[in-house]
Write a protein that binds this DNA or RNA. Structure first.
Lengths: 247, 247
DNA sequence: GGGGAGAGATGCCGC
DNA sequence: GCGGCATTTCTCCCC
């Protein structure tokens, strides 16, 4: 234990990226209060002093501390602790280390950013460039039009000159998407002093209750798929190929 | 490289929790499309076949695959890949391994769940038990009352018998919190066939525009802090104690 | 730094 | 599985 914790403390001092696996319990106090009883976990301390605690299952960390947190190993009555505190955010975390299985530490170098396509913004741009996806005669005027009550994805008018507000969702449009659209429509009616503004939800799908609410308010749903420029795989494949033996 | 990748493949077969550090590039196709150029990262494959890729900075993983994804090492023209696919979700990820710095694999055991307090639900319970936090004479009738347009945090009536709907937020109430409240108020008016229903936002803070919108609709903001039962630290401390040397 | 909103959101609970 | 919604949301963008 002692050699492991000394190694961790030394790596903390050198600002390296540290990974270790341990049996531990965790206490957190900050935006909420939390306690996690003893179990096996993986702990990562990154170069920017982010701390992550992962259980052996699940996508999200069970506990964490944000970047720029101070970390220190302490020993009391032969019990080992990793104490973290972020004074600026008033957040505190203590890991009681019952056992350490392995530790690794490296200086890692990575200046790359993820290049992603298929976001809601990409959808809005696609609609802006291909307005017929909404309806024949739709003329977009602006994207991300700002109002006090939020900003509008695509703003324009139809073939009759009636103003149109389009709210894009990349997956299933829900109740809050509909109230969001309503907020913009009301705001534009108020700002322009007119009563005739159309509201459109553009998404691949919409939940039944949301569609009911949408129709109750006189708005319209248009089915649109988000664009995916980088697509390389055939998603309809049924042949597992290389993977067939490990399914 | 070859011994590392063989070790990884063998650990995948044994369903262990694997951690390795490497230089790699990543390609993802699924709900969106993404590419991450070469850099140093930490990769975790968990016992439930969740995969996480972390850069040396930041809280969130830069790429990931959900639980129950199949993983396999492949070698083509002396280039090493970790290929992951989740056929059920139609998601695919390929890591091109340029270099591996270390690998570790263990069978980890952890059946514990995080015990958390200070959530929105805790706030609702606190208000239910201490209705004077909202106002003198408030009588709560139910929590999580269900409507077609969502469920209400705390439902009750005031000293005059007027129905009241309370929406709790654990941090700053925003525009969508106000529209959410409005949705419930309108739904209850509609269901009960009455016109007099009060709406309350209970939160520590509310954004200025949200408060304006709230007041425009005749609703009210009440300042309430979320409860924190596990609090052990004095957050107003200015003495850094053990941490003073590493700030 | 605050406001506003998306996210490959995730996770939880309910039906 | 979908629906509805909170989250120690995180992250980005813009003011």
């Amino acid at each position: 234990m002692e050699s492991y914790t000394q190694f961790i403390q030394s790596a903390i001092n050198k600002n390296e990226t540290i990974v270790f696996s341990c049996n531990c319990e965790v206490e957190y106090s900050g935006r909420a209060e939390a306690f996690l009883p003893a179990g096996d976990r993986i702990v990562i301390i990154k170069a920017d002093n982010t701390l992550l605690i992962h259980q052996p299952e699940g996508t999200a960390p069970v506990n964490y501390m944000k970047p720029q947190t101070a970390h220190r190993i302490t020993v009391t009555d032969e019990e080992f602790f990793l104490k973290s505190q972020n004074l600026a955010l008033k957040e505190y975390l203590t890991i009681k280390l019952n056992d350490i299985y392995f530790v690794n530490s490296h200086s890692l170098s990575d200046g790359q950013k993820l290049q992603l396509s298929g976001s809601e913004k990409d959808m809005a741009e696609m609609i802006y460039k291909n307005p017929e996806l909404i309806e024949k005669g739709f003329k977009p005027l602006s994207m991300e039009e700002h109002t006090t009550y939020g900003f509008i994805d695509v703003f324009g008018h139809d073939s009759n000159g009636t103003l149109m507000i389009v709210e894009c969702k990349r997956y299933v449009a829900d109740l809050s998407a509909v109230t969001q659209l309503r907020r913009y429509v009301e705001r534009i009616k108020d700002l322009k002093g007119i009563d005739d503004v159309r509201g459109i939800i553009a998404a691949p799908k919409i939940s039944p209750n949301s569609e009911k609410m949408l129709n109750d308010w006189g708005f319209k749903f248009v089915a649109v798929e988000p664009p995916k420029f980088r697509e390389k795989f055939n998603k309809n494949q049924t042949n597992l190929g290389d993977f067939s033996t490990i399914q």
